[in-house]
Design a protein around this nucleic acid. Structure first.
Lengths: 66, 66
DNA sequence: AAATAATGTCAAGTATGCTTTACATTGTTC
DNA sequence: GAACAATGTAAAGCATACTTGACATTATTT
């Protein structure tokens, strides 16, 4: 699954750390998501989507990977 | 987070086991989600949403619980 | 009522998401 | 170019998602 987190974050001109604070997760979690190290939990996905004012599907793109 | 999985599954007249097979997860996973034992991973949430032809937000309802 | 299907539930194990700590690299500002 | 800010990355630990196997309960069919 890929995501547009870095793109959206940069568009809003916020740092990884500031975003992490707003979402109440660690800076490393944001970095890990942006670099594709792992996927967010559904709860974190909801928080992220809400922060950017969009649907989960607009940020996280699931393409039937195995 | 609550969800409408049982409701949607019953509406389509499918058993937990049949749904589990279609989604390639165990029967216990479906039961656990329906009973609120735990939340799905975002990948499973996508699969479920796609199976029912709706958005994740239509099945899984996140209400800012702490 | 007996047989079968569907669901509930529990335990133990593996995988993944997230944390903290720590240090290195890259980018920006003075 | 020195100082500071932002990001990358890795290890170890904890929590949660999901598995298989097993058995009990409830619902449905015959």
């Amino acid at each position: 699954m890929r995501n547009r987190l870095e793109e959206l974050r940069k568009k809003t001109g916020i740092t990884q750390e500031a975003l992490a604070d707003r979402l109440e997760v660690s800076r490393q979690t944001i970095g890990s998501l942006e670099s594709g190290r792992y996927n967010p939990s559904i709860v974190l996905a909801f928080k992220i989507a809400r922060f950017f004012g969009v649907n989960i599907e607009d940020i996280f793109i699931y393409e039937e990977e195995n």
